[in-house]
Simulated assay, not measured.
Amino acid sequence: MHPRINGSTRIYGLIGTPLKSAKSPMLLNKLFAEAQADAVCIPLEVGTGGLVEFVRGMRAVNNLSGLLVTMPHKQSMLDLVDDLHPTSLQIGAINVIRCDKDGRWVGAVFDGLGCVLGMQRQGVTLLGKSVLLVGAGGAGRAIAFAVAAAGARSLIISDLDQHRAQDLAQCVAKQGSCAVHAGPADPTGHDIVINATPLGMNPDDPMPIDAENLIPTTVVVDIITRPEPTALLLEAQSRGCQTLDGQPMHVGQALLALSFLGFEDIERRYWSGL
């Protein structure tokens, strides 16, 4: 049970739309309760047209300590904060904002690092591996940088928008020694396949990759978080692949966000309790 909310409770919000299936408030409030932190996370449904007005109003709330940011505001929020963490400068998006006591809002993004952390905690290393990433949108962009930084040998980025995939590949290739290129959504020859597209959220969605080319040694990660496995994960499991759904990434990015917001003790407590 969450501690009683009082006048000193620190408030954190999740902003975006729609939020009906959002799991972050439930996860954060569970972690707050376990740590007996005087804090609460609440969903705040804000449409695209209301974002500027929302930010203007919320800057007057003195006990607002931070915001989690989801679609469709991850890029729009860049122009509405005061400072950008290096992650947001690199990726061009925000998924968490720390509201400092001096009134300054600092934006960061932990989608990619959270995905890598979640994989590592499930025993999946990226070091020296060949990776296929499908999807070069907001989440895919963050994951691409994080995968390369985690020591992947090569990274192929596939997207329906080939120009977007090529642009992302060129940006990531400048960051280090990982060989990064745009290419087809074909898992042949890859150690790890990551689906960072929305394909799989609905039952009639097409498969994001050519699953017939999966082999048992391939690890398949689908960042979609839903109660039942996606069609991609079911197909991969039937072929003997190790699979990960979106939950490890969700937990990983939430814990990194909490650390950024000043709750390093919650992150340590969580991992030490596993």
Rank of each mutant, 00 (worst) to 15 (best):
D79Q: 15
A108V: 02
P198N: 09
K30T: 09
T17R: 06
I11E: 02
P248M: 05
V46R: 00
Q166H: 07
G128H: 06
A182F: 11
F145D: 06
D265R: 14
P184R: 12
G252S: 06
Q242N: 11
P43S: 07
V131C: 14
Q166A: 13
G246W: 02
L89N: 12
S88N: 08
F263H: 11
L255A: 03
A33W: 05
V219W: 09
Q175S: 11
A33I: 00
A150L: 09
N213A: 14
L126C: 13
I194V: 02
Q170M: 11
A60S: 15
D38W: 11
A142R: 07
L19P: 01
D82A: 06
L233E: 00
L31M: 04
W105H: 02
K101E: 13
L244C: 08
G16S: 03
M207K: 04
I266F: 01
T225H: 10
D79A: 15
V106H: 14
Y270M: 03
L64S: 04
V131D: 06
L232D: 01
G112Q: 07
I5S: 12
G7I: 11
M201E: 13
I157C: 08
C178Q: 10
T217K: 01
S76C: 05
L232Q: 08
L234I: 05
K30W: 01
G246Q: 07
N95A: 03
G13H: 01
V124H: 10
D245I: 05
G66F: 00
V147Y: 12
S76F: 06
L232F: 06
I215T: 15
T218Q: 09
A60Q: 13
G47Y: 01
A148H: 08
Q247W: 13
V131S: 10
A150M: 11
K30I: 01
S130C: 09
P229K: 14
Y12E: 09
V109C: 08
G66T: 00
L64C: 06
S65I: 00
P206S: 14
L67W: 04
P227K: 08
L168F: 03
E235I: 02
V116R: 01
Q237Y: 04
V147T: 04
R104K: 13
V180F: 03
D102P: 07
A182I: 08
G118P: 05
L68Q: 00
N195M: 04
I97Y: 10
H250L: 15
L155H: 13
G7N: 10
L155S: 10
Q36E: 15
L160N: 14
R10D: 05
P3L: 09
P43I: 02
G57Y: 01
A231F: 11
S130Q: 14
E267M: 07
A179S: 12
F263Y: 15
I94D: 00
H250C: 07
G50P: 12
W271H: 04
S177T: 11
V61M: 13
V172W: 09
L126V: 08
C115N: 14
G183F: 10
E228S: 15
D111Y: 09
Q237M: 09
P203Y: 01
I15H: 03
D102F: 07
K74L: 03
Q162R: 10
G137F: 12
F32N: 07
L113K: 15
L199V: 03
Q247I: 05
H85V: 00
Q253P: 04
T243P: 02
G49N: 10
L232W: 07
I209K: 08
S259K: 15
I223R: 08
L67A: 04
P229Y: 03
H85R: 05
